[in-house]
Amino acid sequence: MRRRTVTAGNLDELLQMTDPAVQANEPVAAPPAAVPPPGQGQGLRTEFEFELPRGYVDEAGTVHRHGAMRLATARDELRPQIDLRVKENPAYLSVVLLSQVITRIGDITDVHAGVVERMYATDVAFLQDFYRRVNSEGHTRAAVTCPHCEGHFEVDLSGGRLGES
Results as ranks from 00 to 15, higher is better:
residue 2 R to H: 03
residue 5 T to F: 05
residue 7 T to L: 05
residue 7 T to S: 08
residue 8 A to T: 09
residue 10 N to D: 05
residue 10 N to L: 07
residue 11 L to W: 05
residue 13 E to I: 13
residue 13 E to F: 12
residue 16 Q to L: 15
residue 19 D to A: 03
residue 23 Q to T: 05
residue 23 Q to V: 11
residue 25 N to S: 09
residue 25 N to C: 00
residue 29 A to M: 02
residue 30 A to Y: 12
residue 32 P to W: 02
residue 35 V to T: 12
residue 36 P to Y: 03
residue 37 P to T: 15
residue 39 G to I: 15
residue 41 G to F: 11
residue 42 Q to R: 13
residue 44 L to P: 00
residue 46 T to E: 05
residue 51 E to L: 09
residue 54 R to K: 15
residue 56 Y to K: 00
residue 58 D to V: 06
residue 59 E to M: 00
residue 60 A to V: 01
residue 62 T to S: 01
residue 67 G to Y: 01
residue 67 G to Q: 08
residue 68 A to K: 04
residue 69 M to H: 06
residue 73 T to Y: 01
residue 76 D to C: 08
residue 82 I to D: 06
residue 84 L to M: 14
residue 88 E to K: 15
residue 94 S to N: 15
residue 97 L to V: 02
residue 99 S to W: 04
residue 101 V to Q: 08
residue 106 G to H: 03
residue 109 T to R: 15
residue 110 D to I: 01
residue 110 D to M: 02
residue 111 V to N: 11
residue 111 V to Q: 09
residue 112 H to C: 00
residue 115 V to A: 05
residue 116 V to P: 09
residue 119 M to F: 02
residue 124 V to G: 04
residue 125 A to T: 06
residue 129 D to P: 00
residue 130 F to Q: 10
residue 132 R to T: 14
residue 132 R to D: 10
residue 133 R to V: 02
residue 139 H to Y: 07
residue 139 H to P: 09
residue 141 R to V: 01
residue 142 A to I: 11
residue 143 A to R: 07
residue 145 T to F: 00
residue 146 C to Q: 04
residue 146 C to A: 12
residue 148 H to S: 07
residue 153 F to K: 01
residue 154 E to V: 13
residue 156 D to A: 11
residue 162 L to C: 03
residue 164 E to F: 07
